[in-house]
Amino acid sequence: MQKIFCLLFALSAFLSTGMAAKADGQFPVTIEHALGSTTIPAEPQRIVTLGWSGEDVVIALGKKPVAMTEYGFFQSGIFPWNEERLSGFRPQLSKGETDYEAIAALRPDLILAVLSGVDDVAWQRLSAIAPTVVYRSGPWRADWKEQTELIGHALGKPQEAHKLITDSADFLRSLGDAYPVLQGKTFTFATFFKGANNLVVYLPSDPRVAALTELGLTVSPGVAALAEANPSKISVNVSLEEIERIDSDLLIMWFGDGGKDAFEAQPLFQTIGAVKRGSYVALDDPVSVWSTSALSVLSIPYGFPKFVPRLAEAAHRAEQKQ
Results as ranks from 00 to 15, higher is better:
I31C: 02
K321D: 06
V238R: 03
K185P: 08
G54A: 07
G96M: 06
G51W: 00
P158Q: 06
E84G: 10
T98D: 10
I272P: 00
S137M: 06
Q92L: 14
A104V: 09
I272G: 00
Q159S: 13
V181S: 11
A210L: 08
D206P: 03
R46P: 00
P80T: 12
P91H: 09
I243V: 15
E214M: 06
G138C: 10
I165A: 00
E97W: 10
Y202H: 09
T69L: 07
H162Y: 07
I111Q: 05
R173N: 05
G273W: 08
A60P: 00
G18R: 03
I59S: 00
A315E: 00
V289N: 06
F189T: 07
N230K: 05
R310S: 12
Y135L: 08
F5I: 14
G259N: 04
S76F: 03
Q266V: 11
V66M: 06
L126S: 01
M68P: 01
D120F: 04
I40E: 07
Q124G: 04
G278P: 02
I243W: 05
P305M: 10
G222Y: 05
S279M: 12
V223P: 04
F304P: 00
R125M: 13
M68Q: 10
N197Q: 15
F304D: 11
S137K: 05
S205C: 11
L182I: 03
R208N: 06
A105R: 13
D285M: 09
L112S: 11
P231C: 09
Q124W: 00
S12Y: 06
M68H: 03
L7C: 13
N82Q: 12
Q2T: 14
G273A: 14
S235C: 09
F73V: 15
I243A: 08
L150E: 00
A227S: 14
V133Y: 05
A274W: 00
P44M: 02
L115H: 10
H153N: 14
S116A: 14
P207F: 05
A211T: 14
L35K: 09
Q322T: 13
K321L: 04
K233R: 13
L203M: 03
I78V: 14
C6W: 11
P231T: 06
E83Y: 04
F14R: 00
L250N: 01
L298P: 02
H316D: 15
V48K: 02
V181W: 05
S12N: 07
V133Q: 09
E97D: 15
K63F: 01
I129F: 01
E55F: 03
